[in-house]
Every structure is written in C-alpha cells, then in structure tokens.
Simulated scan of single mutants.
Amino acid sequence: MQTPYNPPQKLASLSRRRKSPISLTPLIDVVFILLVFFMLASSFMDWRSLSLDTSAAGEPAPSDKMPFVVQIGADSLRLNGESMSPEQLIEQARSRPKGQPVSLQPLADTPVQAVVVVMDALNEAWVQPLRLVEDPQWQPTVVDDGRGDQ
C-alpha cells in the first residue's frame, strides 16, 4: 500500500522558514555608501575667487593719470561721474593705462550682489587690479534692536 500524501506538514515547515527576521543592516550600509559617494562626487556651487585690494595703508602717490573710479549703484554704473552700460565700462577698463587700478565705489544702499556682478564681469574680462573704495557720502546707520546694549 502506498503512503498517503501529507501536504500540511510541508506547508508548516515552509511557513516556519518565512517567519525568520530580515536584517536591514546590509541595506542601510549600501544606502550610506551611496549617500557618501554622491556627496563627495557632487558639486552644488561654482566656487570662484576675485582679486580685490582693500588695503588702506596710506594714500597712493599722486599720479598724472586720470583716476578710474567706477561708482556702482543699485541700477546704475558711472565711470568718473559719466553714466554707462556694463559693456562700455569693460571696453573703457581695457583701454586704460597698464597697471592703473580700477577703483570700485559702491554708492550708499547698493546691494552687495550688484557690486559682485560688476566685479565678476571685470574679472572675466581680465581687468586687473581691482580696488574697493568707500563712498565718502555714506553714513552708517545705527539700528536699535531694543535690547539697550551698545
């Protein structure tokens, strides 16, 4: 006589194997390695540097050259008092005498971004040296934060 087929025992043994816990440690390791890889391989910002002379050590010797002062406003550019476009400014800066510094003078309440845009445009046109000068009419404002400390 043939032994009867007994499927419930096999299903019970299969269900015991399926209930074993799944370890997430290898998955976490792989995700961490991918995270570190993409953090090191990615570049989110384009870092560039601009050469800028901000030294106030003494006044330069007077020269016979015409000063090259670029006044930067929130929405205007002036070269020695004459209003001009950024393209005209770059053309004038390239035709100045060799070695004459370009003095950048942000006017009062000019956003820093406007100054950086002009500096970047001059730097891309290989206009050097750049010097930052203060607007003589600018007066710093004292902000009272209500704390009473000075």
Rank of each mutant, 00 (worst) to 15 (best):
S13K: 15
S13N: 12
L14C: 05
L14E: 10
L14M: 14
R16L: 15
R17G: 05
R17M: 12
R18G: 08
R18C: 11
S20Y: 02
S20W: 03
S20E: 14
P21F: 09
P21N: 11
I22A: 04
I22C: 00
I22T: 08
S23Y: 04
S23H: 02
S23A: 10
L24R: 15
T25Q: 14
P26K: 02
P26S: 09
P26M: 03
P26F: 02
L27W: 08
L27T: 06
I28R: 15
D29H: 10
D29I: 06
D29V: 08
V30S: 09
V31F: 05
F32L: 14
I33R: 12
I33W: 06
L34S: 09
L35Q: 08
V36P: 00
V36H: 02
V36D: 00
V36E: 01
F37K: 07
F38A: 05
F38E: 04
F38C: 09
F38W: 11
F38V: 14
M39K: 09
M39I: 02
M39G: 10
L40K: 12
L40Y: 03
L40A: 13
A41D: 05
S42Q: 05
S42E: 06
S42P: 00
S42M: 05
S43M: 10
S43T: 13
F44E: 01
F44V: 06
F44H: 03
M45V: 14
M45R: 07
M45K: 13
M45C: 07
M45F: 09
D46V: 15
D46R: 14
D46Q: 14
W47I: 10
W47M: 09
W47Y: 11
R48M: 07
R48G: 11
R48C: 01
R48A: 12
R48D: 05
R48K: 15
R48I: 03
S49F: 04
S49R: 10
S49Q: 13
S49V: 11
L50N: 03
S51M: 10
S51K: 12
S51G: 09
S51H: 08
L52Y: 00
L52M: 15
L52V: 12
D53K: 03
T54K: 11
T54E: 15
T54Q: 12
S55R: 13
S55Q: 10
S55M: 05
A56T: 03
A56S: 07
A56V: 07
A57L: 13
A57G: 01
G58K: 04
G58R: 08
G58L: 06
E59Y: 01
E59G: 00
P60E: 04
A61I: 02
A61Q: 03
